[in-house]
């Protein structure tokens, strides 16, 4: 059987001497791995860099086989961010999170479209906020959506300031104040108020990291990907994220 689909390269690991096993996030088939013969050669290595957008043809005798990919590079996104450590680490982190979090061969079109949009947004200014929103979308698509519409305690939707680390529901400033040490901070840009400066982005990353760890990676007895931790470290060091502005 065979099919052709567009996909985003999530990663590639060597197989044998010159071949690689590529993990793609495809539009219609979700995360799907396949063997690329000769993919480790200098000539085609550039195609299989995380974040690159490819048109992939997959072929195998039976659908449950690993199968062989042949890919045509459509957009070399990775190459555009090689010189920017923060964007490169964000790209690596997004690909590593998607690769570790998504089940194989299960369509997740919203995550695919979100990742595609995030990669395109890396060219612009507001991508850190988009990254946090993409992780929230990933959690929602995996069945662990956060409820940030109203306070879990009062039912009101004003002055939401915290998120319960247990339920993933928003908590208002007044209701959460006695428990603020235990609650996660809810950055304003996620509920349509406030800017997205460095502190807001870090709050958002801490929140999504908690739920990714609790609901996704923790269940697999895996830590959060090292690439995400490196991205978080870089975010903390970075002073280039501007505050204010509107949510992308």
């Amino acid at each position: 059987m065979d099919w052709t689909d567009d996909g985003i390269v999530l990663g590639a690991r060597p197989y044998g001497e010159g071949s690689i096993i590529v993990s793609l996030l495809t539009r219609e088939r979700g995360r799907h791995a396949g063997l690329v013969r000769g993919g480790g050669s200098g000539k085609s290595r550039g195609t299989y860099q995380p974040g690159n957008f490819v048109r992939a043809s997959w072929r195998a005798r039976l659908s449950e086989h690993l199968g062989n990919y042949s890919c045509e590079l459509l957009t070399a996104q990775a190459a555009g961010h090689m010189d920017d450590p923060l964007k490169l680490s964000a790209l690596s982190a997004a690909c590593a999170v998607a690769d570790g979090a998504l089940p194989e061969r299960e369509p997740h079109p919203a995550v695919y479209e979100g990742l595609l949009a995030l990669i395109e947004l890396l060219e612009g200014e507001f991508w850190p906020a988009a990254y946090v929103k993409w992780e929230i979308g990933l959690l929602a698509d995996l069945g662990f959506g956060l409820d940030l519409t109203r306070c879990a305690a009062t039912g009101m939707n004003d002055q939401l300031a915290y998120v319960s680390p247990r339920t993933g529901r928003a908590v208002s400033l007044s209701a959460g104040e006695p428990y603020r040490e235990k609650l996660l901070k809810l950055p304003g840009f996620l509920i349509g108020s406030g800017g997205f400066g460095q502190a807001d982005i870090l709050d958002g990353m801490e929140m999504t990291g908690h739920f990714l760890d609790r609901h996704v990676f923790g269940l697999q007895n895996q830590p959060l990907p090292a690439a995400r931790a490196r991205f978080l470290d870089r975010l903390k060091q970075s002073a280039t994220i501007s505050g204010g502005g509107t949510i992308p």
């Binding site: 290595r45 550039g46 860099q49 995380p50 974040g51 990775a78 190459a79 090689m82 010189d83 450590p85 490169l88 680490s89 790209l91 690596s92 690439a227 490196r230 060091q237």
Partner: peptide, 15 residues
């Protein structure tokens, strides 16, 4: 190497 892993390593070493 001019790969994502290679350049990530280069940025890490720079830090």
């Amino acid at each position: 190497d001019a790969t994502v892993d290679g350049q990530t390593t280069a940025h890490y070493i720079t830090d």
